[in-house]
């Protein structure tokens, strides 16, 4: 409990900053929607004139972005990216920070097993990503309602947030695994954020080139689609199951790797 509390306290500031950034993105994004809606321009026709590649990179696929659900579904890509970076960094740092700060000698000479230190740290991670998720949810419903005659699309947004949370869990586990395997925090965060970028580039490549579509199982960013969630109200069970199982495996490996680790001063 003491480790959990300490970790929550240590991360509260950064969590607030992440949440504020997220709220601002949703606020600013929905403002743009208002701009589209007011302008009377046929936005779909306008975007149809853009090269497809550009639309794909910005996550604007074939959805009708003049409808609020369609417009909001485009956000999902950015949510995924932000949430992934937040979660993966949290995971990588939380398990390795004592060594980075040279206080591993302090905590790991206490009368506890290593998993008793790592578990509350990871629990703090889960709570942090959950708060981030809830804030995203609340801000989304609030700002959608502002532009949709008071209807916040709670059901659709809830489903989207569930998908987002599963992704967050996956990235938290991935970060933790890097943190326990690699030599120090720097290497772990570099590798983790590099991999997130890699996943993202792969997801764009898959969208651009049909021939590469078989690669989409290798990037978690293709496991859920904003449009499917927001418009068709569907969350792929297979995707959810795979991500959850892989996350569990990663968490398990984190414990094993960390237990075997020679801690540096």
């Amino acid at each position: 409990m003491n480790v959990f509390k300490k970790e929550m306290k240590a991360n509260i500031k950064s969590l607030i900053i992440w949440c504020c950034a997220q709220v601002f993105i949703i606020f600013a994004g929905m403002m743009k929607y208002q701009g589209f809606a007011d302008s009377q321009v046929d936005v779909n026709a306008l975007f149809a004139a853009f090269p497809e590649e550009i639309m794909v990179v910005f996550g604007i696929g074939s959805v009708d972005i003049t409808k609020v659900a369609g417009f909001y579904s485009v956000f999902f890509l950015y949510f995924m990216l932000l949430a992934a970076i937040h979660a993966v960094m949290f995971g990588a740092v939380v398990v390795s920070k004592e060594e980075r700060d040279h206080c591993a000698d302090f905590i790991y000479t206490k009368p506890v097993r290593r998993f008793q230190v790592i578990s509350p740290k990871l629990l703090a991670g889960v709570i942090n990503i959950l708060i981030f998720n809830m804030v995203t949810f609340a801000a989304s419903v609030f700002f959608i309602a502002q532009h949709n005659d008071g209807d916040g699309l709670i059901d659709k947004v809830s489903l989207t947030m569930l998908a987002l949370f599963i992704l967050q869990l996956f990235f938290l586990a991935l970060g933790a695994l890097f943190g326990s395997l690699l030599k120090n925090t720097k290497q772990a965060t570099a590798a983790a954020s590099g991999l997130v970028m890699g996943f993202f580039i792969l997801s764009v490549a898959v969208d651009l080139y049909d021939k590469l579509s078989f690669l989409k199982i290798f990037t978690p960013f293709k496991y859920f689609e904003g449009a499917t969630l927001m418009i068709n109200d569907q969350l792929s069970f297979n995707s959810a199951a795979i991500l959850l199982i892989v996350s569990l495996v990663f968490f398990g490996l984190t414990f094993v790797a960390f237990n075997r680790r020679d801690l540096s001063t």
């Binding site: 206080c103 000479t109 008793q116």
Partner: peptide, 20 residues
Amino acid sequence: YGNEIRRDIGYLPSEVFYYE
């Protein structure tokens, strides 16, 4: 039995660093 043993150990590392 590291965790049990450490209940009764007091350790002062050569380089002292704490949560700053």
